[in-house]
């Protein structure tokens, strides 16, 4: 008699489809990815009330919600893509920003998850400052302004394509993937990366993940430079651009590590604070 144990993960996953990982798909992704980038640097030309630090605040909150709700990895970057595209077109008061963040998570979760986030849950996460009805109405507004183009390309779409082309031992792959995903989330919280093509963020994140891990143990047979060249070839990215992007990613990590340590020092009085400051956990374990 076979016994089925269901306590691991309530979500059933399909096995990876090799047909979706061939070059045709990769080329298509590279062709269409730019269509889904925000149209302008909106702090300069559209928004009057919203400042860059407010985007970081709402992004950090969204990431916390996604992590606490164990959302699929793509949900957060996709939601940030919706938010940036909306803000690139619609001048918005800062008091609406959290509602918009919630709406974007609502939409991204519906698109990517088997069991999506509910409107009620998201409203609780705003400390009930918005009502589910308002969330639903604004959902339509956001959909309209995004022209219903929700299937945006995100850096996650490229990860498997990149990983399978690297001369990597298989047992290291899941660790590299995990770190790269954390880097991608980190990039999504920083406006600097909002207008970079997702393929470049993905390639830079994989590069940063491997180079970071390399310091502790042998994860790749390539040197960092050789790796960057190979990565650049995979996604048709300019080598220098890619290097610059990877450096920026590493700088963002350092920055966020420092911030984390500071918070730790300040917040050491209450242990709850430590629990809360888990934002992009995994990468913080790496010592640079």
């Amino acid at each position: 008699m076979e016994l089925l144990c269901c306590e691991v993960d309530p979500v059933r996953r399909a096995v990876p489809d090799r047909n979706l990982l061939d070059d045709r798909v990769l080329q298509n992704l590279l062709t269409i990815e730019e269509r889904y980038l925000p149209q302008c640097s909106y702090f300069k030309c559209v928004q009057k009330d919203i400042q860059p630090y407010m985007r970081r605040m709402v992004a950090t909150w969204m990431l916390e919600v996604c992590e606490e709700q164990k959302c699929e990895e793509e949900v957060f970057p996709l939601a940030m893509n919706y938010l940036d595209r909306f803000l690139a077109g619609v001048p918005t008061p800062k008091t609406h920003l959290q509602l918009l963040g919630a709406v974007c998570m609502f939409l991204a979760s519906k698109l990517k998850e088997t069991i999506p986030l509910t409107a009620e849950k998201l409203c609780i996460y705003t400390d009930n400052s918005i009502k589910p009805q308002e969330l639903l109405e604004w959902e339509l507004v956001v959909l309209g302004k995004l022209k219903w183009n929700l299937a945006a390309v995100t850096p996650h779409d490229f990860i498997e394509h990149i990983l399978r082309k690297l001369p990597q031992q298989r047992e290291k792959l899941s660790l590299i993937r995990k770190h790269a995903q954390t880097f991608i989330a980190l990039c999504a919280t920083d406006f600097k990366f909002a207008m970079y093509p997702p393929s470049m963020i993905a390639t830079g994140s994989v590069g940063a993940a491997i180079c970071g891990l390399q310091q502790d143990e042998e994860v790749s047979s390539l040197t960092c430079d050789a790796l960057t060249e190979l990565l650049a070839k995979i996604t048709n990215t300019d080598v220098d651009c890619l290097k610059a992007c990877q450096e920026q990613i590493e700088a963002v990590l350092l920055n966020s590590l420092q911030q984390f340590r500071q918070e730790q020092r300040e917040g050491s009085k209450s242990e709850d604070e430590l629990d809360q400051a888990t934002t992009p956990t995994d990468v913080r374990d790496i010592d640079l």
């Binding site: 407010m54 605040m57 709402v58 909150w61 916390e64 919600v65 606490e68 800062k94 008091t95 609406h96 920003l97 959290q98 509602l99 609780i124 996460y125 705003t126 400390d127 400052s129 918005i130 709850d272 604070e273 629990d275 809360q276």
Partner: peptide, 11 residues
């Protein structure tokens, strides 16, 4: 949960 919070004051 620490994630339950309002970010920009009353709506």
């Amino acid at each position: 949960s620490k994630a339950c919070r309002r970010l920009f004051g009353p709506v």
